[in-house]
Design a protein around this nucleic acid. Structure first.
Lengths: 230, 230
DNA sequence: GCCGAACCGTAACGTACGGTACGCCCTTCG
DNA sequence: CGAAGGGCGTACCGTACGTTACGGTTCGGC
């Protein structure tokens, strides 16, 4: 839907020093919010403003570089659908849900989404597109093969993988992201995230699980850990 | 969770002229996004900047007044749960879903949420709290009585109305709001909104509907219209 | 008709910040 | 060892914008 153009490999020509500067800028962005000033970045990163402008062009370029840098740090763990069982599918879905909740509730994600949304109003929708591409759309790209594998294995029933994905997305995220973005002091403990992930997964299976055979609800014990992805 | 303090009756001491100024400012906000300037508001509203400052204190006060003014325009239509049937409950839920989708996809809502989210980073979380209070939380206050009535009538089964509401919220909104806020050019026709509302309602009933008796899926024809609320 | 209050239009002020220029240090290489 | 260049620190410029001040106009009350 949005651009295939910005499917960034970026993080290429970045020296260690530049990565360090971007990390400092990112930390500052998380602390200060949108009124991130070039002078503050230079001071925090112990570099000169002139260097910032030489490397990133202008403030927008710096912001874009920060977002892409953060995106490049989130690496994809491919999931293959061999020998898929209901149990393994369930675990995969729950882990996706858990990872996703951890991401959207992280300070970094909140700060990045805030600045991207703030700029989305004014012409320059680069940031919004990048965030969307590396957030919502990246998740869809990773999850859809799992859903398809589940359908191939006769565990799921759906005609439109996109629609199924969006339902899963809604069941997982619910009102969490918008509340956090608007400043609601929502407390998401690891336990709460795990519970929400399991609940969302069970609800999704109730809606899209194949109706073949009696399929009792899974016990929480059937779900196993999750690895944060940043 | 957030504030009971800001449960605004505002729109009280507002003269017609002031309302007109706020309307002009709101229109400008929708057009210009966050870089709304006091000079531009004064020019658009044909008033002096001095008047703006006298009435609203400062730029933040103006923004707050705009948000509260818009909030005060959205009036609640109480829904009573007398003689509730599965059909009438279904129609009520679908109408809530449709109304909600119309709201979050409106230019006004997007602009307001953007500015509130932009400011949520910097101390001043008034705007975020107000938007939350008049959006997400207002919807919950309106919908929960319907859910409770549905449970009383034996049509729904749940233990936690808040959890049920949040699931409904997720099924309705899915990724729509975040995509729109980030600048995705999502096209939501009235037909698409109606279809999504019906789908979300059916999914919600599949998850929370009472299991008593055979309950075949409803036909789209069973759903009737919806009234936009702004 | 006169007075004061409210309000319009605009000029002016102060500041914050994006962007640029320059001097100096430190490393590297011829 | 000297020249060059990358990069740090800082001073500086221009501008946009929030905020204030002021002169002129309209309007209701006496």
């Amino acid at each position: 839907m949005l651009q295939a153009s910005v499917d960034i490999d970026t993080s290429e020509a970045l020296t260690e020093r530049q990565k360090a500067v971007l990390d400092a800028a990112l930390r500052l962005l998380v602390e200060e919010g949108d009124q991130l000033t070039m002078t503050a970045v230079a001071r925090r990163a112990s570099c000169s403003k002139e260097t910032l402008y030489k490397w990133f062009g202008d403030r927008d370029g710096l912001l874009t570089a920060i977002v892409q840098w953060q995106a490049s740090k989130v690496r994809v763990v491919p999931v293959d659908g061999k020998g898929l069982t209901l149990a393994s599918l369930t675990v995969s879905l729950a882990r996706f849900a858990s990872d996703w909740l951890k991401v959207i509730s992280s300070d970094t994600s909140i700060a990045l989404n805030r600045v991207a949304i703030g700029r989305a109003g004014s012409g320059n929708d680069d940031l919004g597109a990048i965030v969307l591409e590396n957030g919502r759309f990246a998740l869809a790209r990773r999850l859809k093969p799992v859903l398809e594998a589940g359908r191939q294995a006769g565990l799921l029933e759906f005609t439109d993988a996109e629609a199924a994905f969006r339902t899963f997305f809604g069941l997982v995220a619910r009102d969490v992201q918008i509340r956090l973005l608007l400043g609601d002091q929502l407390k998401l403990t690891d336990a709460a995230i795990g519970g929400d992930a399991v609940r969302a997964t069970q609800q999704f299976l109730a809606l899209y699980g194949a109706k073949t055979g009696p399929q009792g609800p899974l016990e929480p014990d059937d779900f196993r850990s999750s690895r944060p992805e940043i």
